[in-house]
Each structure stands twice: as C-alpha cells, then as structure tokens.
Nucleic acid binder design. Structure first.
Lengths: 132, 132
DNA sequence: ATTTATGCAAATCATTTGCACATAG
DNA sequence: CTATGTGCAAATGATTTGCATAAAT
C-alpha cells in the first residue's frame, strides 16, 4: 500500500509544525480556517497514517483527546488535574527505568510514559480564591 | 450533599473487591448477573462518587476505558501495546521523582503515573508467528 | 417529608468506518 | 488507468445527563 502526498496531508504536517501538541479537533479547527473544505475524518485518518509511518508522535493522554506532535527528544509531561492543560517537562530521561522492572512475566518492555499530575498556576490560584 | 447507602452502591463495592481493576463496563456485566435490574448509569455514577469520596481509585488508561480499584500501595503499570492488557508491576515506588522536575513554571506537582509499554507474552508469540 | 439515588433513554465527545466520488502516481 | 485519498454522514465506544419515579434518611 503505497502512500500518496495530498494537499490535505501537506497542510496537516505544516500545521503540526506551528502548533504545540494539538488534539485532532484543535488541528481541524485551525486547518479549517485556511482550507474550509477539509473533512474532520481526513484529519483523523492522516494523523493515524502519519503515526504509523513514524513521521509524527501520538501522545495518548488519560481523560481527554489524544495529542499529536512532531517527534522530539524523549521527554515527560505535566498535566493539570483541573483544566487538563498539558506541558512538556525539563527532566533527564530515565533510560534505565525499563530494566528496573521485576516479575514482568514474559512481558517485553519497550518504553515507558511518565506523567506528573498537579495544578497549573492558574488553577492553583482559582483554588486559593475558592474557585473549586 | 450527604450521601446515602444503597443496595447498588454496596454491590458495586463488593464486586470491586472481587475483580482486578475492572472497567465500568466489566463491572456492570458482572453485577448485572446477580442484580439484573441495575442500570449502567448507576454503575458509572457510583464509581465517580466513590472516587470523589476517595474510597476507590480510578486508573485512567490511555486508549481504553478507565479502570477502577480499591486503593492499594502506590505502584506502576505495564500495558500491552497490542491487546491493551494492564498488569501491576513489582517495582519500588519512586517517591523522589516529583521533586526532580525543573522549570515547572509554578505548577504544583502532587503525584505521577508511570506506565511501561510493550508486548505481553501472548501478543509477543502471535507476533513471532506472523500474527501482526 | 425531603432530598438523594435509580433506571431509562437520549445526549455528548472522541474517533472510526462505509461508500460514492475525486485525484495522485 | 487504478489504487489510494477525500468528504460526508452514519456508526461506534465510553461516559454523562435530563427527567420522572423510587428509596434512604
């Protein structure tokens, strides 16, 4: 199954370069501005294809839509428990973690994801002012 | 808003003791056997209430339904990339990780989740036999 | 007697899929 | 040409919600 280059795929890749790990929906909104004919299904389909081809990364987030991005150095995330905002973190990647697992019962470990949880500055303020 | 104890809530809690981090759907299926009148909405509602009250834990898994469990010692998970099977891992909890984050831009870090990814023995076999 | 909880069906959100038509190679 | 991609709408899966009724306090 040989892939073709289409206008849609080009636009999706370009938009991906301009946005910070957007969700498929966010990407669609932006692209829809300059290219109103595009279908949401096309955005989803191309994102999945690009992930399969290893051209982009899919960040699966608990509780919320998946986010996509151009591949970058392995890193971890910080996610706000309240508003769901996701940010990248400055921390050395723990390469040796995968080999620290005992009793893995034949499971082949290939990678890991580490996400920190808490409150972003904005939500932390809201909370202190009785916001929730 | 004071909570009431209902038959449904009792059954949900009991079933939770018997199952290994089931999804809401799985829990519903099991409960539905012995208590066919229960509604799926009731299962979801009670699970959410129990999580809010801190009585049970919600394990949010990327790409798949959330799973629920009685609170246990902090631990990490192993998830099969192919079939989605989730298992608990034997590994010391990294208490000092939360303080290793630099440049958190005012973010209050409270916890972290660490999940290992790879292939479970079954899927690994399938793969070697050309399954996918 | 209140007020919270339940059951049902409809609604919502993220994502996928079937199908006829368009288009890249 | 012909297989791959597109747009649309309908389908799916997980979860939530509105509303009238039932049950707990």
């Amino acid at each position: 199954m040989k892939r073709r280059m289409t206008i849609q795929k080009t636009i999706i890749l370009n938009s991906l370069k301009e946005l910070h790990h957007p969700s498929a929906e966010e990407l669609f909104e932006v692209i829809h501005q300059e290219y109103p004919l595009i279908s949401k299904a096309t955005v989803y389909r191309n994102l999945n294809l690009l992930v399969e081809e290893g051209i982009i990364d899919k960040l699966e987030v608990t509780d919320g839509p998946a986010r996509f991005d151009l591949p970058m150095k392995k890193h971890y995330h910080l996610r706000c428990d309240n508003c769901g905002k996701l940010m990248d973190i400055e921390m050395d990647y723990l390469d040796d973690l995968d080999s620290m697992v005992k009793n893995n019962e034949g499971f082949q470990i290939k990678s890991h994801t580490l996400t920190f949880h808490g409150l972003c500055p904005e939500c932390n303020n809201k909370k202190e002012n009785g916001g929730f």
